[in-house]
């Protein structure tokens, strides 16, 4: 069935409004769209790592989650959901539960790339029928914008501050999507909240309804950490894709598919200049930083094209 935003938007809301996520934050948009991909008749057990999403969506005694939801700790969203999925299998065999339940774990880049990487890797390797969704905003935003291994090179964060000697984060970002591809999962995809959300929706649907462990890495811009005005969220998300800073692609049973190839690949500075965390890159004498980032973005894009057989 062809994707129609109007129809998708009419599906029952599973992540209700009234949560405390910031205006202009990508994460709740990602969550709503992912959950819309669930069939209305299916129940979901949703896990969430400690982070902005958890502390803003489930403040006792209020919850935004209409499905069953569990927050355990920072680093164990994947392991927690793997346990719930195992219990489901056991209880289903015993005939104690009926109907279809899907298992989704959310985590930010802190809870996924860093402290939760082991838990994620373990759960994926064990083959639980679940989806792990990383909403990647490129730093530990909940504790106040500290660098993570997902933070881009030279970004100014509170633990990689752009100073007079050290100009921000000195390392490239870790390529978690590729790390998950190398787990040889049935479905891995990289996506972003974009336009009519077709890419995100369809990938969420595939991930949820592909049997086995699936992984989605979703770009989720953060107005506080990236320093942009709330209304620019969708524009920044689009620029991340148009510059190939954040390519949209999926790997189905090991086969790479690039979902969007920009006709005119924009220079990465178009993405960088929209955000305060990269402001120091635009000072006179720092041109080399943008050049380095451009070179690395190009290199990774070329590599992706090669993997997809399009180089």
């Amino acid at each position: 069935m062809a994707y129609r935003l109007k129809e998708v938007a009419r599906k029952p809301e599973r992540f209700s409004s009234g949560h405390r996520m910031c205006a202009g934050c990508g994460a709740p948009i990602v969550v709503r769209q992912v959950l819309r991909a669930l069939k209305p008749e299916d129940h979901a057990v949703i896990g969430c790592a400690t982070g902005c999403l958890e502390v803003s969506s489930f403040l006792y005694p209020y919850t935004s989650w209409r499905d069953s939801f569990i927050h355990n700790a920072f680093e164990n969203s994947a392991a927690t959901i793997s346990g719930a999925e195992a219990a489901y299998n056991a209880l289903k065999k015993k005939g104690k539960i009926t109907g279809e339940t899907k298992f989704i774990a959310f985590g930010g880049d802190g809870g996924t790339y860093d402290i939760g990487l082991q838990s994620l890797s373990g759960a994926m390797e064990r083959g639980h029928d679940m989806v792990y969704v990383c909403y990647d905003n490129g730093a530990y935003m909940n504790t106040g914008i500290q660098r993570s291994s997902a933070t881009p090179l030279y970004a100014d964060t509170t633990t990689s501050p752009a100073g007079s000697k050290i100009p921000g984060k000195m390392q490239w970002r870790k390529d978690l999507t590729e790390i998950m591809v190398k787990h040889h999962l049935p479905y891995v995809a990289q996506t972003a909240p974009l336009g009519n959300m077709k890419d995100l929706y369809e990938k969420a649907e595939k991930a949820i309804y592909t049997k086995g462990p699936c992984f989605l890495n979703v770009l989720a811009p953060c107005p506080r950490g990236w320093r942009y005005d709330a209304e620019n969220l969708m524009e920044i998300s689009k620029l991340a894709v148009e510059t190939c800073f954040w390519p949209l692609y999926e790997v189905i049973d090991g086969k790479y598919v690039i979902n969007y190839k920009p006709k005119n690949k924009l220079p990465v500075k178009e993405f960088l200049k929209t955000q305060g965390r990269f402001r120091h890159l635009f000072r006179a004498g720092n041109e080399y930083m943008i050049e380095q980032i451009q070179a690395e973005v190009d290199r990774r894009w070329e590599e992706l094209l090669r993997l997809a057989g399009e180089a």
Binding site: I70, A73, S82, A87, A90, K96, S121
Partner: peptide, 28 residues
């Protein structure tokens, strides 16, 4: 036994999975 055995990758995940399983409604 009818048990689902999860050979986790650490004790942290062992207890995390037990929490998930017990919260889900199973005996862990």
């Amino acid at each position: 036994v009818d048990t689902e055995f999860i050979a986790v990758e650490s004790e942290h995940s062992a207890m995390s999975a037990c929490i998930g399983a017990q919260a889900a409604g199973g005996r862990a």
